[in-house]
Structure formats: structure tokens, C-alpha cells
Amino acid sequence: MRERRPLPIVGQPQPERADAARNRQKIIEVAARMVAECGAGDLSLDEVAREACVGVGTVYRRFGDRTGLLLALMDERERRFQAAFLSGPPPLGPGAPPGERIVAFLHALVDLILANEVLFLLLEKGGTGNRLTGPYQVHHIHLATLLAQACPGADTAYLADALLAPVNAHLICAQRGERGMTVERIKAGLAGLAAAVMRVTS
């Protein structure tokens, strides 16, 4: 089985042949439509291949398995998110104080997860490999950089992990479904956690 590729980091495009790129885009568009219509739980690579009018082998060679295809579906969403916090308007993007940007980032990450909850749940359940690679690494570096500005001298690598730990689909789903928490309460909790971290370490 072909090795699964992590979601890309901004600034690292992966060149493809024109025909391969066309097939990849066709497969992703079909898969996205099928997920929108029927959900991701029963997504079948064989059915995606039939709907996209490509060989089953093409889908398996390009994406490896269903998790690989789900990662590809998240690719464009992740790229837009990265662009927003790296170069978009404040407070998520540059121009706001680091503390405000940290909270805005955590809130935006919650929104991203909620907008793609089924995909995130399946990816987390599927065990996509080392969590410290791909998008997580970008998120971690971004948070650690902001923390270094807000809390000079603090262990920003550890604190970035600590702030990212509660922002995952399974926990957020349980908080909402089992504990009855609203999205606003979850976001307020993350803001309070970030404020406490900055207050203690500053």
C-alpha cells in the first residue's frame, strides 16, 4: 500500500502530472459530493471510483485507503485556515496582540472542526499516524510563536501542546453531546485556559 501523505504545510506544493492532477481533482469532487449527500461514514473507494469514472486502482494508488481520501478532502479547508491565521485580517491574522490572536486561533480551530465534524471524527478514529506532523505541526509552531511573544521565557513548545490538546473532535463532540455544553461555553473555556496560561507564565 502506498505510504499515506500528511496534509501539506503552506508553502510546500506537491507537483503532479496534468493527467494525475485532473484525476485527483475529479475523485475529490466526487467524494466531497458523496460525503455531503450521504455522510462520510459509509464512503467507499470503489463507489467513488465508479462515480468518478476512473479505475479503482487509480483511487487506491493515489490515496491509499479511505483515510487517505478523507485527508485529501480536508486539504483545501486546511489551506484556507492556514492562510487566514498566517496572513488574514486580525485578530486571527497579523495585527492584533498575541494574546488576542491565540484566543482567535483556538476559536477558529473549533469552528473548523465543527464545520467538518464527521471528517475529523473519522480521521481521529482512523489513527492517521503521528499527530505531531502535518497540520498539527503548523498549528503548534504558530501557537508557540504567539506564546513566545506573549510570555517570553516560557516553555512555549509544551504550552502550545497543552492548548491544542482539548481542541479535538472527539472531546468537543462529547462535551456537546454528553455534557450539554454549547459552542460558546467551549470557546469561553478555551479563552479562559489561554488567559490562565499567559497569566501564570508572563
Rank of each mutant, 00 (worst) to 15 (best):
residue 198 M to W: 08
residue 159 L to D: 00
residue 196 A to W: 15
residue 99 G to L: 06
residue 141 I to L: 11
residue 195 A to G: 04
residue 4 R to F: 04
residue 56 V to C: 03
residue 164 L to S: 10
residue 32 A to W: 02
residue 179 R to T: 15
residue 3 E to H: 07
residue 89 P to H: 10
residue 179 R to W: 15
residue 85 F to K: 00
residue 4 R to H: 05
residue 65 D to K: 09
residue 141 I to N: 08
residue 118 V to T: 13
residue 200 V to Y: 11
residue 174 A to F: 13
residue 65 D to C: 11
residue 98 P to Y: 04
residue 51 E to V: 09
residue 56 V to G: 00
residue 54 V to E: 01
residue 7 L to G: 01
residue 4 R to N: 07
residue 200 V to D: 13
residue 201 T to C: 14
residue 189 G to N: 15
residue 200 V to W: 09
residue 171 L to D: 04
residue 8 P to H: 03
residue 48 V to L: 02
residue 140 H to E: 07
residue 104 A to Y: 01
residue 108 A to Q: 10
residue 126 G to F: 00
residue 3 E to N: 09
residue 198 M to N: 04
residue 60 Y to G: 02
residue 67 T to M: 12
residue 92 L to V: 08
residue 123 L to Q: 01
residue 180 G to H: 14
residue 62 R to T: 15
residue 75 D to V: 03
residue 119 L to H: 04
residue 158 Y to L: 13
residue 10 V to E: 05
residue 30 V to A: 01
residue 177 G to L: 11
residue 31 A to F: 10
residue 137 Q to D: 07
residue 47 E to H: 08
residue 199 R to N: 11
residue 85 F to Y: 15
residue 197 V to H: 01
residue 71 L to N: 00
residue 94 P to V: 07
residue 98 P to L: 05
residue 162 A to I: 09
residue 116 N to D: 14
residue 155 D to F: 08
residue 69 L to H: 02
residue 10 V to C: 00
residue 99 G to F: 04
residue 153 G to V: 11
residue 12 Q to A: 10
residue 187 K to L: 13
residue 104 A to S: 12
residue 16 E to V: 11
residue 81 F to Y: 15
residue 33 R to I: 11
residue 63 F to N: 02
residue 155 D to N: 14
residue 119 L to I: 11
residue 13 P to Y: 09
residue 100 E to R: 12
residue 66 R to G: 05
residue 62 R to M: 14
residue 56 V to W: 09
residue 92 L to Q: 07
residue 119 L to D: 02
residue 11 G to M: 03
residue 8 P to C: 00
residue 162 A to S: 10
residue 131 R to M: 08
residue 82 Q to T: 06
residue 142 H to Q: 10
residue 162 A to T: 13
residue 8 P to S: 06
residue 70 L to I: 14
residue 202 S to H: 13
residue 28 I to F: 07
residue 80 R to Q: 11
residue 74 M to D: 05
residue 166 P to K: 07
residue 81 F to I: 07
residue 125 K to A: 15
residue 108 A to D: 14
residue 45 L to T: 05
residue 32 A to Y: 01
residue 86 L to K: 05
residue 31 A to Q: 09
residue 100 E to W: 05
residue 14 Q to E: 14
residue 93 G to V: 13
residue 93 G to M: 12
residue 52 A to T: 05
residue 122 L to D: 01
